[in-house]
């Protein structure tokens, strides 16, 4: 592919000077055509670049500028926004609430991502050892859970954890615990516990299928040889299987971290179902509250920039891996 591309690039990029000189007629006809060939890729990119510049680029620039302005309710009604340089950032850095939210987000992200990875990998290992019928049953269940639209899934989980008639409370109560009319969303800790269960339920299928695909690359012969040489199951897993599936695990973990860091829909919809927003805000819902709730666009922009920088930083590794694949 690379060779071909290079060859083609060469072919289209260098208007051969030899053909241009001898006869004037064909040459003039030819030169513009060659030039058009060179310009073609740029024309092809115009629509995509235009829509990205409009809906991503412009807001991004606006956001960077606004994050350095005092932009609140008064500016909403047309007053000019005074330029305050890094005041918003300084105020945020000094705000203990923001640090609480950041810490909460990071903690939630890491615990949830770790749980997802652990459960997903275990399910993948399970897929590898069960019989064909059970395997298909698990795969169908996982696919259905994966396919559920987020908001639909959230209404289901709200119903499962409903304090009046939710099946979770019923189940726990009938198992002998007192969960009659227990409201899960009131206490921040149990709120995040419920949020974690939901996010794990939604993300495990992707992890399980990806890791399972990685596991199919582990050769059975090698494992058998190791077994004959006296390696225990644990040794075989950590010394043979894990090194082979490490690249998959790395990428999947990275994606989980990125996705769990920006988790918004689940948190927002659980808050909607009745909990105190200030006790349960993560970065996404905090920006939402700053921006649409209190119209403090300067501060909201500053927090957004922080989130963007964080995401881009974490994504860099992922992008590098994808680029490597692109060039191969």
């Amino acid at each position: 592919m690379t060779v071909q591309e290079a060859a083609e690039g060469l072919h289209s990029a260098s208007p051969s000077p030899v053909s241009a000189s001898p006869t004037a007629g064909p040459a003039t006809a030819r030169v513009p055509r060659r030039r058009r060939v060179v310009l073609t890729p740029y024309f092809l990119l115009i629509p995509a670049v235009a829509v990205l510049a409009l809906a991503m680029g412009y807001p991004l620039v606006w956001q960077i500028i606004t994050s350095m302005q005092q932009f609140g309710l008064a500016q909403q009604f047309g007053q000019p926004a005074p330029f305050v340089w890094f005041d918003n950032y300084a105020r945020l850095a000094a705000d203990p609430y923001l640090w609480t939210v950041i810490l909460r987000s990071i903690l939630f992200c890491f615990v949830t991502a770790a749980m997802t990875m652990a459960v997903g990998t275990l399910v993948a290992l399970l897929l590898n050892v069960v019989g064909p019928v059970v395997k298909v049953v698990i795969q169908i269940a996982m696919l259905l859970a994966w396919a559920m639209p987020v908001v639909a899934a959230m209404t289901i989980w709200n119903w499962l954890f409903d304090w009046r008639r939710g099946v979770v409370n019923w189940l726990l109560t009938s198992m002998g615990f007192d969960f009659q009319d227990h409201n899960w969303l009131q206490n921040p800790l149990s709120f995040f516990f419920v949020a974690m269960i939901i996010v794990v339920w939604m993300s495990v299928p992707f992890v399980a299928f990806s890791v399972y695909a990685g596991l199919t690359q582990v050769s059975g012969e090698v494992l058998e040889a190791a077994q004959m040489d006296g390696a225990s199951a644990r040794q075989r897993f950590w010394n043979i299987v894990v090194p082979i599936i490490r690249p998959v695990l790395g990428i999947v973990l990275l994606l989980q971290v990125i996705w769990d860091l920006r988790v918004f829909t689940q948190i927002k919809l659980l808050q909607d179902a009745g909990s105190i927003a200030s006790d349960t805000n993560l970065l996404g819902t905090y920006i939402f509250q700053l921006g649409t709730g209190s119209s403090n666009f300067g501060m909201a922009s500053a927090v957004s920039i922080f989130v963007l920088v964080l995401t881009v930083g974490i994504s860099a590794f992922y992008v590098r891996t994808m680029l490597k694949e692109e060039e191969s």
Partner: peptide, 24 residues
């Protein structure tokens, strides 16, 4: 550069831009 931009933009969270998009 374009490929790089595409990959990075793909990772940008909606939560990092939606207030600005709302204003736009």
């Amino acid at each position: 550069g374009f490929v790089l931009a595409v990959l990075f933009i793909q990772m940008l969270p909606a939560e990092g831009l939606f207030i600005a998009q709302y204003k736009l």
